[in-house]
Amino acid sequence: MARARVYITYKEGILDPQGKTILRALKSLGYDEVENLRVGKYMELELAGTDKEGLEKRLGEMCEKLLANPIIEDYDLEVDV
């Protein structure tokens, strides 16, 4: 069995209202060193199989079709077999 992780983030240039709000909250707590913050999604998957390349390709399809919305989101994925 393989374990996979998918990270989904908003594309550059897309305003992230949640990220902006959290950034302001951190600043109000005195963490002035925080210059930017963006909120994303993290998913863990368990996949049957050991073919790392094949699984990465399949997972990429899953991201394109459902897990991410390519109009506003980018994704990164890691597969450990």
Partner: peptide, 16 residues
């Protein structure tokens, strides 16, 4: 939008 029958995507309201 998600089905691609119309162009674009929806995000959270800016005021959350």
């Amino acid at each position: 939008l998600e089905a691609g029958l119309l162009p674009g995507a929806m995000m959270r309201n800016t005021g959350l």
